[in-house]
Design a protein around this nucleic acid. Structure first.
Lengths: 97, 97
DNA sequence: ATTGTCTTGACAAATATTGGCAAATATAAC
DNA sequence: GTTATATTTGCCAATATTTGTCAAGACAAT
């Protein structure tokens, strides 16, 4: 249930002594949403990542990669054939520009 | 838009001279649905894969891996950071039993 | 017991997904 | 050409999922 991006955000936020409320207002959502996002209970929107990176002074690409990895993980978790499928996908995307 | 699994199914079906209608009745859906599934216009349900493998005398695991790869591809297509994210996921799933 | 922070669950509204139908189009045989 | 059959396409309503909001609960610190 936990996500890599959620964990990272919570880590960054607490290290900087920011409250959920403060992040919430910048993201323009209820605090409960941030709480859930950090714990992987609600999905984080793609467009919110850049804003989060700003607030938390983090690298956008790093956060974005975590987000993407979470999306993929969501698809392949509990799938016995995940490894083979991932290999096939990797091969395929290397052929694109 | 096209999918690996859809392409494979069409290939198998036509090679065996089966009509959409015949596959449709076994899957218990309208022929238009199969048509769309083969062309990647409608998602194929996980539970339908085993049935399709039976009808088309194909290996379940092969079809299932194609399906999974399609799911992953759907997430990472058009994503510049896909490669990095995939690597991270691969690492992570190798650590599980 | 009051205050401040975070979490949880429930709810309706908005959004997305679904399968089926019927019309349109293609394909093949004659 | 015409007919017969196969496939595709667009649209619809039913269903399912996702969404944000809210109120109430838990937990600490004082």
């Amino acid at each position: 249930m936990a996500t890599q991006l959620g964990d990272k955000i919570r880590e960054l936020r607490t290290k900087q002594n920011l409250l959920l409320r403060q992040v919430a207002s910048k993201l323009d959502v209820d605090t409960s949403i941030i709480s859930k996002m950090e714990r992987g209970e609600r999905p984080i929107k793609k467009e919110q990542i850049a804003i989060l990176a700003d607030i938390l002074k983090a690298d956008k690409e790093v956060l974005y990669t975590l987000w993407l990895a979470d999306q993929v993980m969501d698809v392949i978790k509990d799938e016995p054939l995940a490894d083979e499928a991932l290999k096939s996908v990797s091969k395929k995307i290397k052929k694109r520009k």
